[in-house]
Design a protein around this nucleic acid. Structure first.
Lengths: 209, 209
DNA sequence: ATCCCCATCGCCTGTTCGCGGTATGGTAAC
DNA sequence: GTTACCATACCGCGAACAGGCGATGGGGAT
C-alpha cells in the first residue's frame, strides 16, 4: 500500500535529502515539502497525507507550534519530529502538542524506514535517549511509602485525593466518620501537614496514591 | 562484543525457545534461564548479566516484583519485559519498578534482536501499542483553559493547590480574604466542584496549574 | 452611553474540618 | 504476657470553609 508523506524542514539540503530518501522506497511518495509551517493547516487539509515529518527549529513558527495547530484543527495525521534537540523541554512539548514520534537527526538514516512502519502500526518511534527520557519521566514513585502510611491510611488518603469528604469516605469504607477523622489525623501527622488540601497536594505530587 | 543474558520465564517451552534464539546470535550468550524470580537477587549478583528478559506472570512472585527487587538491591542491569499483558496497570507498574523495555510476546520474533541493541544503546524498546500508551500518558494538557478560568482565578487555584489557606492566599496577593472567597466561589462554579479538595484534585490531575 | 465581565469588598448562616482528648478489641512481636 | 501498633469509635470546641446575596469601580465591546 502507498504511504503519502509531507515534510517540513527549513534547511533546503536536508529537505531535499529527506525527499530523496522517501522516494527511494517504492511504496511511499512525497506529497509535499515545505520550509515552514505557516500554512500547515490548509496544506494538511488539502494534501491529506498519511504521515508528516517535522523539524522543530524553523523560521516564523516552530514545528511544535505547527503540530499543535493541526491538532487543534482536528487532524489526527501522525507526526514524527526530526530534530537535533534532545532536551526534556522540547521532547515533552512536542509530545504534549501531539507528536507521535521523536527522532534525532543523527538517527535519521538508521531509523527513518522502520519509524514510518512503526508509526503506521500505531507505535511511537523514538531515538533511544528520547525513549529513556520518556520512560524516566513516568517512573518516579519510589517514595511511595517513605511516610510509613498503613494500608488503611493509604486507602483513605487516596479517597481524600479524589475529593471525597469525610462523610463520603466513611460511606465508601463502611466505617464511622469518627474513625475517618482518626485516620486522617494520623495521616496529617505522618505527612507533616495540617489540612486536606495540603495532604492531597502532597499525595498527588509525590505520587503517594 | 559479547552480551550475556538472563531469562526469567515460567513456561518451559518458551524459555527454551528464548534460549535458542539467543544462542543463534554469535555475539550473545545465555548466562542462565530460570522459571521464577525467587532468588533473582543472588542470581543477578553472581551471574552479573548485561541484560535480563523478564516474563510478568510467574508463580510465586511476578516479574514486576522481580525487577523491583533487583533495583532495590542496587542493580542497574537493564530489564526487558516479555509479556502478554498490554493494559496500563502492568505497563506502568513495570516501568515504575525499573524496566527499561516492554515487548509483547507476539512481537518477540520480530523485535528481539534489535531490542537488545536498542536497550544496550541506552534506549527503551517497546511494542508499538505500549509506546503509544506511554506517550499518551505524558500528553494530557490540552484542557489547560477549557474551564475558562481568568488569570486571577488560575493564580488563586495554583496557590490553593499548594495547600495555602484563604488567609495565606489573601496575604500572598495583598487582597482581602473576602475577595479570595469570591474568586474561589467562581472557581468552584467553573470546575463544578464544592470543596477545596475537589478543586485541588481536579486542578492537579488535569494539569490546570 | 450602555452593558457585561472582572476584581474587589462585605455580611450571614450553616456545615465541615482540625485538634485535643479517651477508649476498646485484635494481632503481631518480644 | 507485656508491649506495641492498628483499626475502630466517640466527644467537644473553635477555626475554617461553602453557599447565598449584595455592592462598587474599572475596562472593553457595541
Amino acid at each position: 500500500m502507498s504511504v503519502s508523506i509531507l515534510v517540513y524542514e527549513d534547511n533546503e539540503l536536508l529537505r531535499e535529502n529527506l525527499g530523496s530518501m522517501i522516494q527511494l522506497n517504492g511504496d511511499w511518495h512525497l506529497k509535499g515539502a515545505f520550509e515552514n509551517v505557516l500554512n500547515i493547516e490548509e496544506q494538511v487539509k488539502n494534501l491529506n497525507p498519511d504521515l508528516i515529518f517535522m523539524d522543530i527549529d524553523m523560521p516564523g513558527m516552530n514545528g511544535i507550534e505547527g503540530v499543535r495547530k493541526i491538532r487543534q484543527s482536528g487532524s489526527i495525521t501522525p507526526v514524527i519530529m526530526l530534530t537535533v534537540f534532545e532536551d526534556d523541554q522540547h521532547v515533552f512539548d512536542a509530545i504534549c502538542a501531539g507528536a507521535s514520534g521523536y527522532l534525532l537527526k543523527k538517527h535519521i538514516s538508521a531509523r527513518l524506514f522502520d519509524a514510518v512502519e512503526e508509526v503506521l502500526a500505531g507505535g511511537a518511534p523514538m531515538s533511544p535517549t528520547i525513549a529513556r527520557m520518556v520512560i524516566g519521566s513516568i517512573r518516579q514513585k519510589p517514595l511511595s511509602n517513605s511516610y510509613l502510611l498503613t494500608d488503611r491510611e493509604k486507602e483513605i488518603l487516596a479517597s481524600l485525593s479524589k475529593g471525597n469528604s469525610y462523610k463520603l469516605i466513611a460511606d465508601e469504607y463502611q466505617i464511622s466518620i469518627h474513625t475517618v477523622r482518626t485516620h486522617i489525623k494520623k495521616i496529617y501527622e505522618k505527612l507533616h501537614v495540617h489540612s486536606q488540601t495540603e495532604a492531597v497536594s502532597k499525595a498527588i505530587n509525590e505520587k503517594l496514591v
